[in-house]
Write a protein that binds this DNA or RNA. Structure first.
Lengths: 117, 117
DNA sequence: TTGACGATTCTATAATTCTGGAATTATAGA
DNA sequence: TCTATAATTCCAGAATTATAGAATCGTCAA
């Protein structure tokens, strides 16, 4: 993941309303939720919600599809996973005991052969 | 982790310069790096760097200690871990195959007994 | 005490982001 | 076609954040 994409994703999440939306979608699973459903659940105005969803979408954190009059949003698990991996990349090289709990997120395990530190 | 803390941490990271600093500290390990060393490595002005470090520090993402004339900054691994766990909390409940790679980050594994979905 | 160095704080300006009202677009049903 | 519903787009004012110059603070060594 490029730093620019990571900053876009982090900026998108660095907002109380958008973070709540994203986490709700993460819990909702791949079926996602309709925009209106999200609006009712969060109490957000329709236009505010729409612009927040478009920011999350531009950052690649959610996907959308139309279903009749509704638009269904779902968390983009792959992008989220890439973001987490980017954050902890090469975590504490040489001290695997510290980031051991994060090893599955990193693209390669701490201390793996051939990793520059 | 409270949503407010998570937003603070995400806001701190949602900045190209600060993200670079944080990732450098994550790689640097618990020994950390002196502010001046970080400044040389990133090419940032001393005052800009200082204010960015204070933002990361206020968000709990880095810790600092004085060593002579230098101030040494280090990544706060516990806070980082909490943030990641917060982001994927209750990830796709009922669809553990999707977030399996993240299971070690979440405080409890997907589909664990007794988790409300 | 003095000078040098590492780092932070203060301040003003520039730039960006947030919010909500109003208008617009898209779809479904009568 | 007409109407209602779902969602988005446009816009301006308010608030926040970023940047860099200048001054200040803390530590060390002579």
């Amino acid at each position: 993941m490029e730093p620019t994409s990571a900053v876009a994703a982090l900026s998108a999440l660095a907002h109380e309303g958008r973070l709540a939306i994203f986490r709700m979608l993460v819990r909702a699973g791949p079926e996602g939720m309709a925009a209106g459903e999200i609006a009712r659940a969060t109490g957000a105005l329709a236009n505010t919600l729409s612009s927040n969803l478009s920011i999350l979408s531009a950052a690649g954190l959610v996907s959308s599809r139309r279903d009749g009059r509704s638009i269904i949003y779902a968390a983009a698990y792959a992008q989220m996973s890439e973001l987490l991996a980017f954050l902890v990349e090469d975590c504490c090289c040489g001290h695997p005991e510290i980031c051991a709990p994060l090893s599955l997120v990193a693209s390669q395990p701490c201390g793996a052969e051939g990793r520059a530190c």
